[in-house]
Amino acid sequence: MFTKEEVKEFIIKFGKKWLFPDFYNKVTWYVVTLGAGIILTPIPFKLVIYNWIIESINLNSGNIITLSEMGSNTADYWLGYSLITLALLHNVFSKWLLHQNDVQERVSAEKINAVDEALFKEFLEVFPSGSRSAYLLETHDFGNSFNLESLNNIDKFVDEWNCPEKSFIDQDLEAIRKELWAKCYKFSWLVAEKSSPTHGGLQSVVPDRVRGDWDWPKWVDDDVKAVNKMASEVFVLHQSFIKFMRETLKC
Rank of each mutant, 00 (worst) to 15 (best):
N25K: 06
G15T: 08
K13P: 03
L59S: 13
W78K: 06
I38N: 12
T28M: 02
C251G: 07
W52K: 13
V206E: 03
Y185V: 01
I176N: 06
K121Q: 11
S133W: 03
W181F: 09
A114Q: 13
V227A: 10
K229V: 00
W214H: 06
V236A: 12
A109D: 10
Q100R: 10
F14P: 00
F123T: 09
W214G: 02
T85P: 01
F235T: 00
Y77N: 07
D221A: 02
A36M: 12
S145W: 01
N73L: 05
Y30L: 15
I12P: 00
A231Q: 02
K250F: 08
Y185A: 05
D159L: 15
K46P: 01
F2H: 11
D116H: 05
N101D: 09
M70N: 02
W219K: 14
D159C: 04
F20W: 03
L59H: 10
F187W: 09
D141T: 02
H238Q: 11
N228P: 11
L237K: 14
A87N: 09
Q104T: 07
V210R: 01
G71A: 05
L79R: 05
G15H: 08
S188P: 07
T74H: 04
H238A: 08
I84S: 05
Q100N: 05
M230E: 11
T33E: 07
S150L: 10
E165V: 01
W29M: 08
T28Q: 09
K183L: 13
I49C: 04
A231C: 06
G62W: 06
L190Q: 15
V205Q: 10
D222Q: 13
L119M: 07
Q203A: 14
N147D: 15
K243A: 11
P44I: 07
R211G: 00
V103K: 03
G130T: 15
D223W: 01
Q239V: 04
K225P: 03
N147R: 14
P207A: 02
D222P: 00
K166R: 14
I43W: 14
I57N: 00
L148W: 11
F241G: 08
D76Q: 00
K16M: 10
V191G: 10
N91G: 15
L89Y: 11
E55C: 01
F244D: 02
S204Y: 02
W78Q: 06
E160Y: 06
V126L: 10
Y77W: 10
P217L: 00
P44E: 12
K16L: 10
F244E: 11
D208C: 02
V7Q: 12
T28W: 00
T66L: 07
T28Y: 07
P217Q: 02
D215N: 13
W216P: 00
H140Y: 04
F235I: 00
K166I: 00
Q239R: 14
I54W: 01
N147L: 14
S145C: 06
V220A: 05
R211K: 13
H90R: 09
R132V: 04
F142G: 05
